[in-house]
Amino acid sequence: MNLEFINALKDIEKEKGISSEVLLQAIEHALLTAYRKNFGSTQNARIEILRETGEIKVFSRKTVVSEVTDPRLEISVEQAREIDPDAKEGDVVDEEVTPQEFGRIAAQAAKQVVVQQIREAERGLIYEEFLSREGDIVTGVVRRQETKNVYIDLGRAEALLAPAEQIPTERYNRGDRIKTYVTEVKKTTKGPQILVSRTHPGLLKRLFELEVPEIFEGIVELKAVAREPGLRSKIAVYSKDENVDSIGACVGPKGIRVQAIVNELRGEKIDIIKWDSDIKVFIANALSPAKVVSVEIEEGEKIARVVVPDNQLSLAIGKEGQNARLAARLTGWKIDIRSESQQIASSEEGKEEDPSCLE
């Protein structure tokens, strides 16, 4: 090993982002293993690579004694003082014992270990990089599909999009460029495993944060998200600045902002509603596009009883109950929806059954 070797490690540091010092320490460890294997494992040795020149030195660590009984582990006071003039009995000194043929043996024995250490260091860097991106969006290219799992190339790593995290209406073709939400990063023996999702509500939230400057800057706050992935979503937004329209900011000029998100989610419809601290108003807003006549709430059970015009009932409930379900998830309240005529009929039945109403 020489100066060219040191320079090569610095090139690896620049290209792969792995510290040359980490590599040198790994190589020293590998060389120590090779030395013990080839020159005796009973010696208490250490390996040092000179950082300036790349020269390898092998040192045998020996205890200073008055009478040597094991020359592999002990050294006399006189010999020790040739290495260190201040050495005294009981000290430990390093005696250089570098074999002449060690360079060839070391290079041969350490190669595989060094490659493995480089690989492990790269895995560690990738793990740390993506661990910090949990709860964030990553963009990648679909590489392959195996047993319904989709594998996405993120550049330095590969992510797994499991069947449960795939939008049922989507098809993922090799070469497709898609955005996914990082749900978890795990350490495994084969390197970091990055789990991503296309169905997580966080994906929709982060897409709006990326697309709407007012949300990113904190002027508009995204209060809640409810999704039926691939079909329809609702988000509740609130503006901290009365001069900024929260819904208008999310929609964007000519709908360009929300349309970009709809396109990314391949046609998923998105309702943007105004959040309100008054739960009655918030629930009424959440049932948009239906108009609401009244909202009565039961605080203890978190049930909201909503009345809508007769011609708005099917709109409020939505296809197969979708609008009502999303509104319930968005607000966190159970929602019971009735038309005006149903409410009147229910009230009249209640009066007939109540003895106090009889003459």
Rank of each mutant, 00 (worst) to 15 (best):
N2G: 15
N2C: 14
N7W: 10
I12Y: 02
E13A: 14
S19W: 03
S19A: 09
A26M: 00
H29C: 00
H29T: 09
A30D: 08
A30P: 06
L31Q: 08
T33P: 10
A34G: 07
N38L: 08
T42G: 10
A45I: 05
I49G: 00
T53D: 14
K57D: 10
V58N: 08
R61D: 01
R61L: 06
T63Q: 02
V65H: 06
E67D: 08
V68I: 14
D70P: 04
R72Y: 05
I75P: 09
Q79P: 10
R81W: 12
R81E: 10
A87M: 02
K88R: 03
E89T: 01
G90P: 06
E101R: 15
G103M: 13
G103Q: 08
A109W: 04
R119Y: 11
L125R: 12
I126H: 06
E128P: 02
G135E: 14
V138A: 13
V138S: 12
Q145H: 08
E146R: 04
E146K: 04
T147Q: 12
Y151G: 04
L154C: 02
L154S: 01
E158N: 01
L160R: 11
L161E: 10
D176E: 13
D176A: 11
K179A: 13
K179H: 09
V182D: 06
V185K: 11
K186Q: 09
K187I: 11
K187A: 13
T188Q: 12
T188L: 07
Q193L: 00
R198I: 01
G202Y: 04
L204A: 03
R206P: 06
R206K: 11
F208Y: 02
F208N: 06
L210I: 14
E214F: 08
E217G: 08
K223N: 05
V225W: 13
A226K: 13
R227K: 15
S233P: 00
A236C: 05
D245A: 15
S246A: 15
I247K: 15
A249R: 07
P253A: 08
E264H: 09
L265R: 05
I270L: 12
D271L: 12
D271Y: 07
I272V: 14
S277H: 15
D278N: 13
I279P: 03
V281H: 00
L287E: 04
S288V: 12
V293C: 10
I303A: 07
I303C: 03
I303V: 10
R305P: 06
S314H: 07
I317D: 09
N323D: 06
A324W: 07
A324G: 09
A324L: 10
L326A: 06
A327H: 08
T331H: 07
I335P: 01
D336C: 12
S339H: 15
S339Q: 12
E340C: 03
Q343Y: 15
I344P: 07
S347D: 11
S356G: 05
